[in-house]
Design a protein around this nucleic acid. Sequence first.
RNA 1: GGUGAGGUACUCAAGUGGCCAACGAGAACAGACUGUAAAUCUGUCGGCGCAAGCCUUCGAAGGUUCGAAUCCUUCCCUCACCA
Length: 439
Amino acid sequence: MSEPSAPISELAWRELLFQHTEGLPAAFAAGQVTGYCGFDPTASSLHVGNLVPVMGLVHLQRAGHRPIALVGGGTGMIGDPSGRSSERTLQTLETIAENAEAIRQQLAKFLDFEGPNAAKLVNNADWLTKLSLLDFLRDTGKHFSINYMLAKDSVKSRLETGLSFTEFSYMLLQAHDFLELHQREGVTLQIGGSDQWGNITAGLELIRRTTNGDANALTFPLITNADGSKFGKSTGGGSVWLDPARTSPYKFYQFWIGADDRDVSRYLRFFTLLDRDTIEALDQSVRTTPEQRAAQRALATDVTTRVHGADAARVAQEVSALLFEKADPQGLSDAALEALRLEIPFATYSAPADGGPADGGPADGPALSEGIDVYECLTALGVAASRGAAKRLLEQGGVSINGTKLSAADRLIGEDRLLRGRHLLLKKGAREFGLVQVP
RNA sequence: GGUGAGGUACUCAAGUGGCCAACGAGAACAGACUGUAAAUCUGUCGGCGCAAGCCUUCGAAGGUUCGAAUCCUUCCCUCACCA
């Protein structure tokens, strides 16, 4: 890494710049800047919504500056005020420590923890848990007037609906963090989402008053989806996580592949490190040949590779080709089947148990000797909520196995249709799949 | 604490004793058309069942009735205004 440069123009053309303090360009021009961004350890994984600030740190580091990622182990404790006993506090601390470690490992994929501008991960529990209330009120609280705090958007907007003292104080804790890092690590910049502006500037205020030091703020725009939905939700509704145990690399890849044409250009800027010429060429392809979805492919490949590695990205691509580009499932290799069962819902087929027809209870299904019951497969996979739903799907032609569409008469599948003698690849609609293994 | 208005399926919202598994809209799911898109059109949308039909649901629990989402009682909760 050569001389530190100003990442501002880079962030600007990527449309990642929402707001920054006036002194920031001068600070970048003056030399290496140490900047930080906070992450909440409420879950054991980051999700795609966290990627914007993560990429912010990445751009900082690429420009030769020093990024620090702060995990809110301390602020996370008071963030959730729901009832807890002293035992649970300990448990929570444990969980938070685990979460912090998990998040650290995810951040390590983006940041370089070695070299002259090595990234660093800190946890504000290290100092906040030792902070006494009286010290805090005297050293931090005295620098803020209630009037100043009430004027912040985050507070003002909550005055009607209600705001606990705990949450009201949150900005002071964050300001305290900023000051702490300023003194410990020489941090002079905090970055975050645009909603963090008020909290960040509170920290600037505290630094100025306490140490007469100078520091800066930079915020990113809120990510919006063109169709008005919330960014970061998969089609099923759940969050898209970076943890492969929560969101498989295939699902992750699919999330990006499914990006709306109207969003994909912005997402390329936000979430990849592709250069400007490449991205503008992709913009052009969205306009001229949208059906090829070159931009979505580039986006999905780049982000999946960074988060899950090249191998996982390639498997995701292969599985996607098989599932969506009409590759013949009969040609599946054992290895591909093995990969597939990790990527899509998988269930082992069991013939329904014998017994009399029970009212309201699960009814008898056909014996295995009569064939494989598609209803049972669909419900076991969770693809259909109930046998009734499975039946409706079948009647509407919404189910296919091994690439062949089924009709209402095809409830029972003969063993001769199994892939490699023991697998069924089921598809519901256009993009939901499941794999069933017959014992 | 007082007064008033309410609690119906994922959401909004009809329904005031039988024609109610419950109008309608949205969401969702499927089909057609497509680019794994958008828009549009069609169908489905409590559970079990091939079906006839059966079972479970209208805040909760009781009660009246041949019959209740609808009437009565008690309880729980939400909202608005007042204190």
